[in-house]
Nucleic acid binder design. Structure first.
Lengths: 145, 145
DNA sequence: CGCAACTAAGTTGCGCACAATTAAATAACC
DNA sequence: GGTTATTTAATTGTGCGCAACTTAGTTGCG
């Protein structure tokens, strides 16, 4: 395939991913408005709801976010009263993030969000899983490059 | 499927898309470093290389970007000497973006980028097209919601 | 004509993503 | 034990994405 044609295809593919990511973001924005959360903040809360208290480093590894993104984000969650920072006594470099009662309680309000998102995508659960698998595969390939 | 399980799936899916989008961005960042372009700037240049001079509005519609994003981005491309703004004489509200000779010439340097990206994804061209189709379908569903 | 409604682009403000740097604590090593 | 290297967060600076608003030009309607 000639370079020029590949350039056009690249246009299509990278744009599609970009657009899909932002379209998801937009619908999440609506769905999360009532909870007072942004999409990345929701991702952090999902981690905490599922796994309980975790150091910043662990959250960062799970979400592929560095401290440059997480530090201010967590500060906002803290001032919203949803999480609490606690510096570890064993290793004082480490800061563990805990849910406050309010943060824990927000999980109840978040429960209907995924169903709403699922409906918005227009895909079945199986298709969603397929998409997820494909994306995970691409991501791991890209990480090696 | 119970809400709690859906919440976990949501975690997986929305995270996958988020992660894939950022993984793509990271590899593009490397591939475009030599061209001095960011990923969104590259998208704008792709549009101009393919279609020629276009008003800001048309670029925005094609890339789903509003003037809040495009105005400063185009200003940076202009100060990099790659594009030129020209206010329309028929409708003085409209500004048409033209490639400068330098901007046009950059296309030559950009030609090998897609092949490099394709290799980095680890997908075949057919798989890429499939992924693109799936994403486009999701995006259009999300747009209606 | 004159005025209201609309449209295109730009501006401002906030949050995220990421590179680069800094500060403090811990680990490793001679 | 003391020096060096590594690790964990935080900070700074740049750019994107988007909502809300502003400015200037155009259109439509009485």
């Amino acid at each position: 395939m000639p370079d020029a044609e590949l350039l056009r295809l690249d246009h299509q593919v990278c744009f599609s991913l970009h657009a899909a990511s932002r379209a998801f973001g937009g619908v999440y924005r609506d769905a999360l408005k009532d909870l007072g959360l942004t999409y990345p903040q929701y991702l952090v809360m999902l981690v905490l709801w599922e796994h309980g208290p975790r150091p910043v480093k662990a959250i960062g590894e799970q979400l592929r976010l560095d401290s440059g993104t997480l530090s201010p984000l967590l500060k906002r969650l803290e001032s919203a009263g949803l999480v609490r920072r606690e510096r570890s006594t064993q290793d004082e470099r480490s800061v563990t993030i805990h849910l406050t009662p309010a943060g824990d309680e927000l999980r109840t309000q978040a429960l209907p969000v995924p169903r709403r998102m699922l409906a918005a995508t227009g895909l079945t659960i199986e298709e969603l899983r397929t998409l997820q698998g494909l994306l995970a595969r691409v991501t791991s390939s890209l990480d090696e490059a």
